[in-house]
C-alpha cells in the first residue's frame, strides 16, 4: 500500500490515495488537519474498481471477475487473458482534462492499467473498464509483478513519467524486485529504463539492499537538485557463522536434536486435539477444543520454555537466513550530462 498525497476531490486539502490488498483503490479525505477513515473509490456505476481478483465484502471471500477487463490490448499469459490483482493505485491526470484518472498496478501478472475519469474531481465518474497502459508499443510490464507505481517527472521535461517497481520472488532464491522508469514521450511511454536492477539475491552476510517487494519514492533527499530514491522492501541475508570447535559442533547437534523432539511433541499434542474434534461442529467443537487445549497448557508451556532456551544458542552457533524489511536511501550520483534530469 503506497500512500499518495493528492487533492483528490479538489477541495484544497490533500487526501491520501492508495491501492490496497483487497484489490481496489481507496481514498482518505483530508480537511487540512486530519484525514478521515478511508472510502473505496467506486466507478460510475457504483461498482468497486478492480482488475480481476478482489476481496468480496458481501460474501467475505476472495473472488474474481472479468467485468473490468480492457476491451483492447488485453495482456495475455500463455494465450489467456492475464489475471490481475490490483494492490497499488495512483491518481494522475492522464488525459489532461483537468481531473484525476487512476493508474493501477497489478501484483499478480505485472501489468499496469488506467481507469479514466469521465467526470470531474468533485464528481468523479470512473469508467467501467480498465485500459492497458502501453510502453514501447507493448503492455507495460514488470516481470517481477508490480509492487507499486509512482508518477514523477524524472527527466524534468514537464511531463510525468511512471516509476514501476517489482515484487520479485518473495521468499525463494529466484530474482527479486527492481525499479524502472518509463519516460513520458508525449503520446506514449518509452521502454523501461532500469533505476535499480532486480535483485539477484547474492549470498550476503548482512543486508545490502532491498531484495524483495521494492516500494520506491523519488525525492531530492540531499538537496543537490536531482531526484534520489527512498525504497522500502525486504532484505535477505544469512549472517556469517563462526568456525565451530568440535565441542560446539557436538553441542549444536544435541540442541538441534532437542529442537526436533520439541517440534515432534508439539505436533503430537495438536494431533490429539485434531483427532478428538473430528465430526464436531460449531459450539461443541469450540468447547471441546478449549477444554483439550487448556488441559495441554502445562505441557505446552514446558515445551515453549525449553524451545526459547535453546533457540538463541542455536542461532548463535548457526545463524539462519534472515528476511527483514527496511527503508533504504539511494543517493543519485549520476553525472548531470547523463542523468536525464534537467
Amino acid at each position: 500500500m503506497s500512500p499518495q498525497f493528492v487533492d483528490f476531490n479538489d477541495d484544497g486539502h490533500l487526501d491520501i490515495v492508495v491501492g490496497i490488498f483487497d484489490g481496489s483503490p481507496h481514498v482518505a479525505f483530508g480537511d487540512g488537519k486530519h484525514w478521515q477513515q478511508p472510502h473505496t473509490i467506486l466507478d460510475k456505476n457504483g461498482e468497486i474498481i478492480v482488475l480481476n481478483a478482489f476481496w468480496n465484502f458481501e460474501e467475505k471471500k476472495w473472488d474474481a471477475t472479468d467485468r473490468c477487463n480492457p476491451e483492447s490490448n488485453m495482456p495475455t499469459t500463455n494465450g489467456k487473458p492475464a489475471e490481475g490483482h490490483l494492490t497499488s493505485a495512483i491518481a494522475m491526470d492522464w488525459d489532461s482534462d483537468g481531473d484525476f484518472d487512476l493508474v493501477l498496478g497489478d501484483h499478480k501478472s505485472g501489468y499496469v492499467y488506467l481507469r479514466r475519469n469521465e467526470g470531474s474531481n468533485q464528481k468523479p465518474q470512473f469508467a467501467a473498464k480498465n485500459e492497458t497502459v502501453m510502453a514501447g508499443g507493448k503492455p507495460m510490464h514488470d516481470a517481477g509483478t508490480v509492487a507499486t507505481i509512482r508518477s514523477v517527472d524524472w527527466n524534468g521535461d514537464g511531463k510525468l513519467d511512471l516509476m514501476v517497481s517489482g515484487m520479485g520472488d518473495p521468499f525463494g532464491d529466484a530474482t527479486g524486485g527492481g525499479v524502472a522508469i518509463y519516460l513520458n514521450e508525449g503520446s506514449s511511454f518509452g521502454q523501461a529504463i532500469t533505476l535499480i536492477e532486480p535483485s539477484p539475491k547474492p549470498k550476503v552476510t548482512e543486508p545490502k539492499r532491498p531484495d524483495v517487494g521494492l516500494h520506491p519514492e523519488a525525492v531530492d533527499i540531499d538537496g543537490d537538485g536531482d531526484l534520489d530514491l527512498l525504497v522500502g522492501g525486504y532484505s535477505q541475508w544469512t549472517p556469517a557463522s563462526k568456525g565451530l570447535s568440535e565441542t560446539e559442533k557436538a553441542e549444536l547437534k544435541v540442541l538441534r536434536s532437542d529442537l526436533a523432539a520439541i517440534q515432534k511433541e508439539t505436533a503430537a499434542l495438536s494431533a490429539i486435539i485434531t483427532e478428538a474434534l473430528e465430526g464436531l461442529e460449531g459450539d461443541p467443537r469450540t468447547e471441546k477444543h478449549t477444554k483439550l487445549y487448556n488441559a495441554q497448557r502445562p505441557q505446552r508451556a514446558k515445551l515453549t520454555t525449553h524451545r526459547q532456551k535453546i533457540l538463541p544458542r542455536i542461532e548463535e552457533l548457526a545463524p539462519r537466513a534472515k528476511r527483514v524489511s527496511f527503508t533504504w536511501a539511494y543517493e543519485n550520483i549520476t553525472p548531470r550530462e547523463s542523468s536525464g534530469q534537467r
Binding site: 532491498p210 543519485n332 547523463s338 542523468s339 536525464g340
Partner: peptide, 17 residues
C-alpha cells in the same frame, strides 16, 4: 540546471538504511 540528453547510465550510491 541545464538540459542534457538522456542516457541510461543512471547511477546511485550503494544504498543505506
Amino acid at each position: 540546471l541545464t538540459s542534457h540528453a538522456f542516457s541510461q547510465g543512471i547511477q546511485f550510491k550503494e544504498p543505506v538504511r
